[in-house]
Design a protein around this nucleic acid. Sequence first.
RNA 1: GGCGUCGUAGCCAAGUGGCUAAGGCAGCGGAUUGCAAAUCCGCCAUCGCGGGUUCGACUCCCGCCGACGCCUCCA
Length: 522
Amino acid sequence: MKIQFYNSLTNQHEEFTPLEPGKVSMYSCGPTVYDFAHIGNFRSFLFGDLLRRFFELTGHEVHHVMNITDVGHMVEGEADKMMEAANRVKVNKKSGRVPEGAIENPEDPYQIAEFYTQAFLEDARRLGYKVAYEYPHNVPRATHHVEGANGMIGMIQKLLERGHAYVADDGVVYYSVESFPGYGQLSGNSLEKIQSNAGGRVSAENQSRKKHPGDFMLWKPDQNHIMKWDSPWGVGYPGWHIECSVMARSIIGRDVIDIHTGGEDLIFPHHECEIAQSCGATGKDRFANFFIHARFLFVENEKMSKSLGNFYTARDVFDGKVKVTDERTGELTEMGRSVHPAVLRFELIKSHYRTNMNFTAKGLIDSAQTIDRMVEFRKTLEDKIEGDSGEVEVDLSHPVLSEFAAMLADDLNVSGALGAMLPWIKSDHPDPRLSLAVLKKMNSVLSVAPINEGIANAAKEVESESDAAEFEQAQQWANEMDTARKDKDWPTSDAFRDKIHAAGFEVQQTPEGSKIKRKLSV
RNA sequence: GGCGUCGUAGCCAAGUGGCUAAGGCAGCGGAUUGCAAAUCCGCCAUCGCGGGUUCGACUCCCGCCGACGCCUCCA
């Protein structure tokens, strides 16, 4: 099977061949943990997850690493992120989004980072982000990789030795972009352009200390910084870009990796600088063979922003805080009903990673219906093979799986893959055991229909006791509804149906009586 | 200004130089139903605009219009 992706390095589709046959190394830029991760973050992370699961489907052994940036990064002229976070924590505590007692000391950056790291991992796991289940393995934290020869300090030293970095008058260590001829390849920038665009944010005073306006910071001595480490260049903190170069190399254990993913905004400067650092330190001509970037997510056709009121964290969506325009009144109201994580996952992965996906309440409802169909299908198959749960082996030679995989192999064409799967679900299934095995394979990539496949299954949520009680109550109403129906007492029957709906369930008439099931959303 | 992506039905969205332009949602008609829901059957687009290349283009080329991203912290 030919596997190809759009490579940001060359701006074209390229056939993918792993460095080592059968093995794929991937590095994804992860979240900065000074706030809850939002759905835009997760769109990009889940794209990485989909890629990883695709490789696993096609028999590759995948080493996927995603970092957690828990170091605040000073930007010239702006407050430090961790400092901002401290203020935000105080606000969030008042509003109840951060529970009382969760962060004892909002001034302590390590406590803030720890809290949001755990919150992120929790959200990520609910969304079926596989690597989050491997934490702390394969999910390194920047603060743990500052010191030592294999840490950021070690790499900065190496860059100094090799002539790619210098210490400026003010003691700041800069990377010298002119020392690396490949600088600009990824983003299509040239040093001249960067020069002409310089100015703006960066003060003239700082600029004059650099050899070239494009030179970026590797280490900044600063006794007063909120997070600081000792180094040969004084107590201070590392630049933003160096962490990924270091962690990718140290956790994956290779100088050159197969694939690097991230959001499109990371192309420049972040990934450009990573390449310069990694290649500068290793002497290799490349850092990753493929750079694959996901485009931004929009909400109801607008860029997501806090000021527009369309900024959603993953947990906002789980809690039903998505705003919907009421068709009758035209007013914005909250959806109200909780959204199953599988629904959000599906909504975020179902459109191509290189389009600007538009997140909408309508799309969420769509997604819920599709998942519902998959879940129903699975139940039907399981009912048919009751008592005969022996596993059937299927491989990609199965026609439907083969098409499904081939679509994904073509630049992760999820729509095409779904176009193969959904009609198949509707078709006849003479061999339910085989069909179930096929569905499981597809779900190992999509991870949206609850199938017992161990960890990393978004919809495989543990039912809480209160959930179980609700379910029992609804089933009881359904039974009473059946009794009323036998007596042809339609008003009573309808009243029970309304009750069941109001409780968030659907009721279906079957030959065996009324059956209920929980609505996935809305 | 520089670099880049994109424009397919009410919505999401795949795809191809030439058979009926995937699939899903919504909608419509029908079966079923006490009425619904669910389910099943059927219906539902000529591909932003203009020009060119070609026997033939939605698919290739040029121009235009429009949307968006990056160039600065941001997934």
